[in-house]
Nucleic acid binder design. Structure first.
Length: 494
RNA sequence: GGCGCAUUCGUCUAGUGGUCCAGGACAUGGCCCUCUCACGGCUAAAACAGGGGUUCAAGUCCCCUAUGCGCUACCA
């Protein structure tokens, strides 16, 4: 028998990072043993579910690199829930409950006040045939409740946690069909897991308690029990449930901020699971054979953005320059550093490629790209930082800048007037070396050589390697900027 | 309140009774590389929640307490 796993999101929001991890683990577990993965949309809550969320969840799952073998939507399967509910009704394992929401609310309040666990008081359990008939005739709305016998022990062996048991009296008769005719979560899930012949239920820890109810249903419905495994929750930095307060929580938010699918998959894999060899950097496909459900950690995990960033940086460094440039471009548009119509402009595009190559090692998240590169897209220097001004104040700096400017100008002359000037890294490097050579006698070298040059074309003391900066800016812009800096020195009498 | 689950460095984890004065990774500090920032390399500091058992021996097994989280819906 081939193992069958399922992933069952409800489309009441985007794909949450925790839900994505559950999806990933199901995928990993299924693919590791050659099993099938079923995607099931649990949209029985007609008030909160939307088609838009469903679409976004599916898109995110695909972007994430997951695939599945079968697809179902619970809202299209109502007839089957009705059929099984009818069966339970006929077998006297379930009954119609005519209690109003108000009465139930009241009951709950009273029980809570007495310090008791809230639980249905079984009022409609023993309604006579006549009373039911009468209520039905009056058109009273009803829900269908499942009978839970007291005094039973419900046990199951969780693949991750070991044996877990509950006593049936803490459960109470629960609703399987709501008064609007839709099935409740516990019922729909069990009917589907049974009907779809699911062998492994791998889901979030928040379902442990539900498992007790569901086991009762599996048995009453005559289905064989699947194996259960409950994955711990993902918590925020402060130990509370991960929420908007902690930053991005859905896959699409992470994608928009500039996290790579590979990085998220990798990070989520090592959150609650560790390969035997201790290696932390791997693709989700690399661990397919190694992933074992019992190895999943029991304790909750705090989501560490810093570690995700570290991993994201690693995958960014593995990208080709062209691919990285392509990935970074949308962020440039978003920050209005370039315009959409620049996408066809070869000069702009080559500048982005050069920038991507220069900044690859600095990037941790794609959306950091604009802040690093924006200065190099301007015509002029926007301003000089404090430590940059200090560099300019040095006596030797003026000498270096004159020499630099001279070199740039003579270099420019070597090109024909209307020729497209591509001043690459190699040439930039040579140019700097030549300056160094000519200033050797003055013993200007190292920091005293490079820093004034850097400051004169960027206004800052930090940035990518100098030859790269020069190459990105191009000869003309460099000349313009050095002149601007010379002007600045003069005006401020540095 | 009831029930359930969890608890190893700040964080993620390795550890399945002796090889653990507890190993790795992120983050942090220092050093090296280096024009700077990063990258890379080296290094330092940093943990078995507390208390009882069981055992020759406990991070590892059992019990209690504490703390955190989840469920306690005609949400999923």
């Amino acid at each position: 028998m081939i193992p069958r796993f399922r992933f069952a999101p409800s489309p009441t929001g985007g794909l949450h990072i925790g839900t994505a991890r559950t999806a990933l683990f199901n995928w990993l577990a299924a693919r590791s043993v050659g099993g099938k993965l079923i995607l099931r949309i649990e949209d029985t809550d007609i008030k909160r579910s939307t088609a838009a969320y469903e679409k976004s969840i599916i898109e995110d799952l695909k972007w994430f690199g997951l695939d599945w073998d079968e697809f179902y939507r619970q809202s299209e399967r109502n007839w089957i829930y009705q059929r099984f509910a009818r069966e339970l009704l006929d077998e006297n394992k379930a009954y119609r409950c005519f209690c109003t929401p108000e009465r139930l609310e009241d009951l709950k309040k009273r029980q809570y006040a007495e310090g008791m666990m809230s639980k249905y008081d079984n009022r409609c359990r023993e309604l006579s045939g006549g009373e039911i008939e009468k209520n039905l005739k009056e058109g009273k709305k009803f829900a269908i409740r499942f009978k839970v016998e007291d005094g039973k022990e419900i046990k199951f062996c969780d693949l991750i946690r070991g044996e877990i048991s509950f006593r049936s009296e803490v459960i109470g008769d629960f609703i399987i069909i709501k008064s609007d005719g839709t099935p409740s979560y516990n019922f729909a899930a069990v009917v589907d897991d049974g009907d779809m012949k699911i062998t492994h239920v791998l889901r979030g820890e928040d379902h442990i308690t539900n498992t007790a109810r569901q086991i009762l249903l599996f048995k009453s419905l005559g289905f064989s029990l699947p194996s259960f495994a409950h994955i711990s929750m993902i918590l925020g930095k402060d130990g509370s449930k991960l929420s908007k307060r902690h930053g991005a929580t859905t896959i699409s938010q992470f994608r928009e901020e500039g996290y790579l699918a590979e990085a998220i998959g990798n990070y989520l894999s090592i959150l609650s699971w560790a390969p035997r060899d201790g290696e932390e950097i791997f693709g989700i496909r690399d661990i397919m054979g190694k992933f074992k459900i019992p190895d999943i950690s029991k304790s909750p995990a705090i989501f560490d953005v810093d570690k995700l960033k570290w991993i994201n940086g690693i995958y960014i460094r593995r990208k080709s320059t062209e691919e990285l440039a392509r990935l970074c471009t949308p962020y440039l548009i978003k920050e209005k550093i370039i315009d959409k119509k620049d996408l066809g402009n070869e000069k702009v595009m080559s500048k982005i490629v050069k920038g991507a190559s220069a900044l690859r090692d600095n990037l941790k998240v794609l959306n950091e790209f604009p802040q690093y590169i924006k200065d190099l897209f301007r015509e002029k220097i926007a301003g000089y930082s404090k430590d940059a001004v200090e560099i300019l104040t040095l006596d030797t700096s003026a000498v270096v800048l004159q020499s630099f400017l001279g070199r740039l100008e003579s270099e420019l002359k070597s090109f024909d007037n209307n020729q497209d000037i591509d001043f690459n890294e190699e040439k930039s490097k040579n140019l700097i070396n030549m300056i160094g050579e000519s200033l050797k006698e003055l013993k200007i070298k190292g920091k005293f050589l490079y820093m004034p040059i850097r400051v004169s074309i960027t206004g800052k003391t930090h940035g990518p390697e100098l030859p790269r900066v020069i190459s990105i800016l191009g000869l003309k812009n460099c000349i313009q900027r050095v002149n601007q800096t010379l002007e600045y020195i003069k005006n401020n009498k540095l």
